[in-house]
């Protein structure tokens, strides 16, 4: 098991980047580089991470980054992997680093294609549950009832279950993570690096700007999402489903905090009624029933 003190002091997301104060995706990026070092090529579509490094001709990324069109992360990563193979470079990991809009909505066809071609790369979706860098618009990842600028009275539909959409592609490794649990996060990325084929990692990256909470609460918000069961830490390795701690200890409903604690701390859920909160709680419990069955079948 990794310990925080063993991690490299080297930074590849340089100081002075222009992410919002308290940015969850920025913590995730730092953790990604702590896990993989600088032997990595990032493919970044339009998303917050194409803004975070700052304006041309400077960048805060100290690793090679290919900025790409919104829909083309999977296709571009396939191209980079093919180029590396042609030049016989074996020690470089290709990482597709896309937001939830670029994964759930716009980039899903290129991602699906790359997974079907069994491209050897890690696709990481950092999910802040809205189109963040254009000013918080609704995406396929926005949860039920959340305010965005395009759903001023709260979204009326549920969030897609992207991890299981990817599981249907029968790829060798799928995991969920959260920067509030850095050891779990880093271990999953390192594990994904060792596996051959397409790997998909889904990260919940809390966003103070879009979720409307105080900037100091980013890590706390991620932790609360896991403890209430809204976000679940699991991995599906070669079809085998496994819950990871601390989610693995939360199968019993009594051990999970009520989702109300998580929802009421965020300004984007301010318009939720008691009925809506009960509905969300019911959906979370249904998801957990599914996870329990999956975990006990293994």
């Amino acid at each position: 098991m990794v310990s925080i003190k063993e991690l490299s002091k080297e930074e590849y997301l340089l100081k002075g980047h222009i992410a919002c104060a308290g940015c969850g995706p920025a913590i995730s990026l730092r953790l990604l580089f702590k896990a993989l070092g600088n032997k990595v090529i990032l493919v970044v579509p339009a998303c917050c991470s194409s803004v975070i490094p700052g304006p041309y001709p400077f960048t805060s990324f100290a690793v090679p980054v290919q900025n790409m069109l919104f829909e083309a992360t999977g296709a571009t990563a396939s191209g980079v992997v093919a180029a590396l193979r042609q030049r016989d470079i074996k020690d470089v990991t290709v990482v597709g680093w896309a937001g939830d809009g670029g994964t759930f909505d716009i980039g899903i066809q290129a991602l699906s294609g790359a997974a079907e071609r069994e491209t050897d790369f890690i696709y990481i979706c950092y999910d802040n549950e809205a189109y963040g860098n254009t000013g918080v618009q609704r995406s396929g990842a926005t949860p039920y009832g959340a305010w965005t600028t395009t759903t001023p009275t709260g979204k009326k539909e549920r969030k897609k279950d992207i991890a299981f959409i990817m599981a249907a592609h029968r790829i060798p490794y799928i995991a969920t993570a959260c920067p509030s649990y850095p050891i779990d996060f880093i271990e999953k990325i390192r594990k994904a690096k060792e596996i051959k084929g397409t790997k998909f990692i889904h990260i919940l990256a809390p966003c103070p700007t879009g979720w409307r909470y105080d900037t100091s609460k980013t890590v706390e918000m991620g932790r609360l999402a896991v403890r209430t069961g809204v976000w679940t830490l699991f991995e599906i390795e070669h079809g085998k489903f496994k819950l990871n701690p601390p989610s693995s200890r939360l199968i019993d409903r009594a051990k999970r905090k009520p989702v109300k604690e998580y929802l009421t701390l965020q300004g984007r859920f301010r318009k939720l009624t008691e009925v809506d909160i009960e509905k969300t709680q019911k959906w979370v419990d249904e998801d957990w029933e599914r996870y329990r069955k999956l975990a006990s079948n293994q």
Partner: peptide
């Protein structure tokens, strides 16, 4: 150090934190 989104906290030799006020955005994490 691990939770700072800006990398504005550096670890000294004895692992104590040193904050770079040129880049700290004051998020309070």
């Amino acid at each position: 150090w691990i939770y700072c989104p800006d990398g504005a906290i550096t670890r000294e030799e004895d692992d104590s934190p040193k904050i770079d006020y040129d880049y700290c955005k004051g998020c309070g994490i």
